[in-house]
Design a protein around this nucleic acid. Structure first.
Lengths: 159, 159
DNA sequence: GTCACTAATGATATGTTGTATCCTTCGATG
DNA sequence: CATCGAAGGATACAACATATCATTAGTGAC
């Protein structure tokens, strides 16, 4: 699990290059997200920080830190689940694939996958025809994860 | 604006065919959504009902009614905006296009557009490769609407 | 160093969204 | 008209998020 350290180090470097500060608390929140390998709610992060560091951080602080992490593209909000995930490309500069979130309807587990840019182009086309402007090519896709899919009866899908 | 009546009539027929009851209150909520031609929050619907009908409906009731409308495919929840919209295909039986929501980041306006099924197939492919199951082919796409796009500076996009 | 300035965080209150639970009313059916 | 399930009312509370003002910590000018 040295991968976590690697990601944090990479984030630190990126912040220092950009002239912004990855403070202790910001690092802790990011670390929480990276370690969990999953989407976490703001209040779960509050608990995590307080449990892990004997700290007592208020929700407000967590939300501020999440805003910061989002603005630096170190984390993303998953709107469908009201949760937050570490960006899975922190260590990677160029993005050949467009990141997309698969959100499990049942357990809210979030997986980030890449899809080819060409696929997004089709969507962008439709959006433009509607007179809108695609503001983020990042989609949240309503799914069932592998585990929950096994539990669910097939006929409940595509309802 | 006789279109609204038409949609409501169509919804009534569909409910009666399916043996479920489109009660007065349910009809009012659906009418609110249809008339507004926009996504509304549950609490906006509470206000709407109480203002328009001198009623006093509790949020709980609205949520229940929204659940019903969703289960009958007369309305959809837009997760990104925590709002609800009337299904734009109530009067239309067969769906040649897959409905998608364009959600304005700035003003939360929601537009429902259709995109070709083929485009969705590409996404579904990626989802399957990740071991997930697409539970709804309906996406919520983060956009700027025509109005907000005019207000925003171009360099703020694709950030 | 220390002054002044800004970024970051703390503290507190409150707003918004959604659910749990239990009870009452309404409508169909025998 | 009795009964039974569906719909709705009432109340409380949980989860998610923001507003605002005070305080502390870094950073540069001098």
């Amino acid at each position: 699990m040295d991968k976590v350290q690697e990601i944090i180090a990479s984030a630190e470097q990126r912040c220092s290059e950009r002239g912004v500060r990855l403070t202790t608390k910001r690092k802790r929140v990011l670390k929480g997200l990276v370690e969990s390998e999953n989407a976490m709610s703001a209040y779960e992060l509050v608990d995590y920080c307080n449990r892990t560091y004997g700290d007592s951080m208020a929700p407000m602080s967590i939300y501020r830190i999440l805003d910061f992490l989002e603005s630096e593209h170190l984390a993303h909000k998953v709107n469908m689940a009201n949760k937050y995930v570490a960006c899975s490309h922190i260590t990677c500069d160029h993005e050949h694939m467009v990141p997309q979130f698969l959100v499990c309807d049942s357990c809210s587990k979030v997986k980030e996958v890449g899809i080819p840019k060409a696929a997004i182009a089709v969507l962008e086309q439709s959006v433009q025809e509607a007179g809108y402007l695609l503001s983020s090519p990042q989609l949240e896709i309503s799914c069932l994860c592998d585990e929950c899919a096994n539990d669910a009866a097939p006929e409940t899908l595509h309802g």
